[in-house]
């Protein structure tokens, strides 16, 4: 099994689509850093022109933990990345099962390792590659933004971010924001992983590559639309929970994202894709 996992990971990471998806993600997150740098520079000039001495509370708005792509709601990078990430996640390896079935590579592998090992290895590789192309740009953005913005620890009373009581690890965000940010990168990894595995599962059913690649994105956009209708527009701080998976992939969505909600979604997608894929790949005869 481990040998098969290693081979699948090699195939997943040493392929052109992985590089393309990662470059697109890094490009979006890089542009976001440039925007932050320009804005920060202009703000600094304004403050200097006012001859302000010392650091006022209002500079909290320039903190790394406000301008990081996973939290800021007003940047180009945030808007683009948190719409396209479901496409980036499926690009590297989501379609590989269907491709290998079609080409005959599947026969070569299962006859050597068996269907169960093949499926588990494929699932791991799809999950990890999908998670990596989502989490790595977000992590890179965090580190690059740290070169531009000071990392002030925020005060909850500032109300600069929507993160407040009821949000995932909100206490950690205001006490140890670096730890929060790194944990959030892991959550992004999980989101990328489960969404790419939706594509893996669909690849057992769909004959057209584009359909399998785009369906997770379309479903998430539809869910976003339905959820925003359900929740209304003024949900901040009113006890509503964020229901849209697209929003839940952000560290600071409009409404609360408690851990139980976040991990219920991730658990649901994981169970759906693993059990659904397992039934199709291992149990169902493929003629």
């Amino acid at each position: 099994m481990l040998r098969c996992v290693r081979a699948e990971l090699t195939k997943a990471f040493r392929n052109r689509m992985f590089v393309i998806a990662l470059v697109i993600g890094l490009l979006i997150c890089g542009l976001d850093v440039i925007q932050t740098a320009v804005e920060f520079s202009e703000a600094a000039k304004r403050i200097l022109s006012l001859n302000v001495i010392g650091v006022s509370k209002s500079t909290g708005g320039r903190s790394l933990f406000v301008n990081w792509i996973a939290i800021t709601a007003f940047s180009f990078g945030n808007m683009v990345f948190y719409i396209v990430w479901p496409i980036l996640a499926v690009l590297p390896y989501g379609w590989s099962y269907a491709e290998e079935r079609k080409s005959g590579m599947y026969d070569q592998i299962v006859s050597r390792v068996g269907r169960k090992s093949y499926f588990v290895s494929k699932y791991v590789a799809v999950f990890v590659s999908g998670g990596a192309v989502v989490a790595l740009p977000v992590l890179a953005n965090l580190l690059a933004t740290a070169l531009v913005c000071p990392y002030y620890v925020l005060d909850v009373a500032d109300h600069i971010t929507p993160i407040t009581n009821g949000f995932f690890l909100s206490r950690l965000f205001y006490t140890a924001p670096w730890a929060f940010a790194l944990i959030w990168c892991c959550v992004e990894f999980l989101w990328g992983g489960v969404v790419s595995c939706i594509c893996l599962m669909l690849g057992t059913k769909f004959r057209h590559q584009a359909m399998a690649l785009l369906t997770p994105f379309i479903v998430l956009i539809l869910l976003e639309s339905v959820c925003s209708q359900l929740m209304g527009s003024d949900a901040l701080g009113n006890g509503y929970y964020e229901l849209s998976p697209l929003q839940l992939a952000m560290a600071a969505p409009d409404s609360a994202n408690p851990g139980w909600l976040l991990f219920s979604y991730l658990g649901f997608f994981f169970a759906l894709t693993f059990i659904g894929g397992y039934r199709e790949v291992v149990k169902r005869e493929l003629v």
Partner: peptide, 27 residues
């Protein structure tokens, strides 16, 4: 078992040797 059923299927971006090494690494 070793088989060639229907079309030979390989990773197009790998060399022949690398393809076989990857397959052989499974067992």
């Amino acid at each position: 078992i070793g088989m060639l059923i229907e079309n030979p299927a390989f990773l197009p971006n790998y060399t022949g040797l690398k393809n076989l090494e990857l397959l052989a690494s499974l067992k």
